[in-house]
Every structure is written in structure tokens, then in C-alpha cells.
Amino acid sequence: MTNILEIKNLNKKYPNFTLKDVNITLPKGAIMGFIGENGAGKTTTIKAILNIIKDYEGSIKLFDKDNNDEVVKEDIGVVLDETFFSEILLIKDINPIMQGIFKNWDSNLFFKYLDKFNLNKNQKIKTLSKGMKKKLEIITAISHHPKLLILDEPTSGLDPVARNDVMELFQSFIENEDCAIFFSTHITTDLEHIADYITFINEGKIVLSKTKDEIIDNYGIVKCKSTDFQKFFKEDYLKYRKNKYEYEVLVENKKEFKKKYHDLVIDKITLEDLMVLMIKGE
């Protein structure tokens, strides 16, 4: 098995939203960031992977097995957008509950992570800050040694320091090369550091799925005047946007572009620019 997650031709129709021909492949040892606007289909895709939504077309395989296979559950760790802990519990109360749910639950690992990320096991969950709660959810999700971690917006609403802690947790998880992480987000700066693959969904369709390095090292944004823009051939750029004072043009290979059109300003791309131009550009 080289792929941990394989989605083939996933289709799902709602009255006013459609997930169309979604294909995603996540090899083991990798982190994939799943980006897109709110409402683009990120959560729907995740819910289909987890078999929370059932009546879809297409196939979803986890570790080469169908996603409704019971054995699959033991091998995935999940963090969804909404908190699932009862507020009246203490942090340490999670331990016996999870012991009952997962065969492989590792109490030592759970308490080790609590220490490492400065969570006090005797604290009430109710009194935790948003960032601490998220860290607790992630620690809980990885303490039964899953092979795949699936997270929906794990960093939204967190401050930069807490986000950094979460990224650190991810990277220690992925040090085991048999594991993989699939997480959705609209905060793209997190991904610019640690993700291996970026998959970009827009209006229910996958518009881009590549290694992050391919995107960051090759894509670029050309800033130019309208007279320059008129000289560009249509096949040389992906999207453009006319702003008040300049044109912003998204190109797939900045080196080739530079060879063909000299003396232009080509900026390095950020995933945020990419998202905005792919969605808003013409």
C-alpha cells in the first residue's frame, strides 16, 4: 500500500450544491492541505471520507479498504470543526472514555502529549481557551496511534502561537512515515510551511492538486500595465485580474514566462494569492 487515501470520481448532489468528480490521492508519509473558500465543498468531502455522508457516487478507499469497513476506524484520527467533549469533564477524564472506544488507545502517549503542550490534566474542559481545546482534540485524535489524521479547519480561530504548536504536533506525528495527514483550511500560511501536497477545491470541483513546492517554486504573479498585458498570448497565463492601477496575471511557470516576456515584475506566489486569483480572476 502506497496510498493512504484514494478518492475516485466522488459525486454528491444537494439542491443547491454539487460535489463533482472529486479525485484525491494521498500517499503515505505526506501531509495534504485541502484549501478552498467557505462552502467550496471541503467539509462535505471530509464527511464523505468518514462515511458520515453515505449516499454519494464514486469510491473512497482508506488503506486500500472501503471506507465503510469497520477495521478502518481504528486507524484514523479525526478532528472536526465542532468540539465533541462534554464541557463538565476534566481533561484526564478523556482517558478512560477513549480507552473504551479504541483498542489501541495509549494512555502514556496521551499524558505525554498533554505535558509537552502544557495542558493541565486536572483542568476542566469548560475553562480551556479555544486554542487549548483544539490542541486537546488533536492530542486525543492521535493518541490511539492512527495512520491517518483527518482534520477539518484545525487552525481556524487560533492565534499564531497556537497554530505553530498545532503544526509542531503535525510534524511530530508525520515523523512516522507510515502515517499521513489530510486537513482542510482556509488559513493558507500554515500550509506554506509544512504541507507536501496542496489540493484546491472550488465550487465542488478540484481545480488543482500538486506538490506545494511545484506551486511555490514555479507559479508566479506578473504585475504589469495594460499595454504589456495586451501582448500576452492567452496560453501563456492561467488567470488575470484587472485592478485599478495594474493587471495581476497568474502564470504557471515563471521562468518560461520570463524568457518570453522580458523586463516584467514577477512576484513569488503565496497560496493566498493563488486562491484569490483562481477564484476571482478571469
Binding site: 505526506a30 501531509i31 510534524q171 515523523e175 507536501d196 506545494k212 513546492d213
Partner: peptide
């Protein structure tokens, strides 16, 4: 993997 973790970059 450890280099990626310590530099906070991707494994690829």
C-alpha cells in the same frame, strides 16, 4: 523527516 520537522518545511 527530522530535518523537515526541525526546519519546519515539507518532507518533499
Amino acid at each position: 523527516r527530522s530535518l523537515a520537522k526541525d526546519l519546519r518545511v515539507s518532507v518533499i
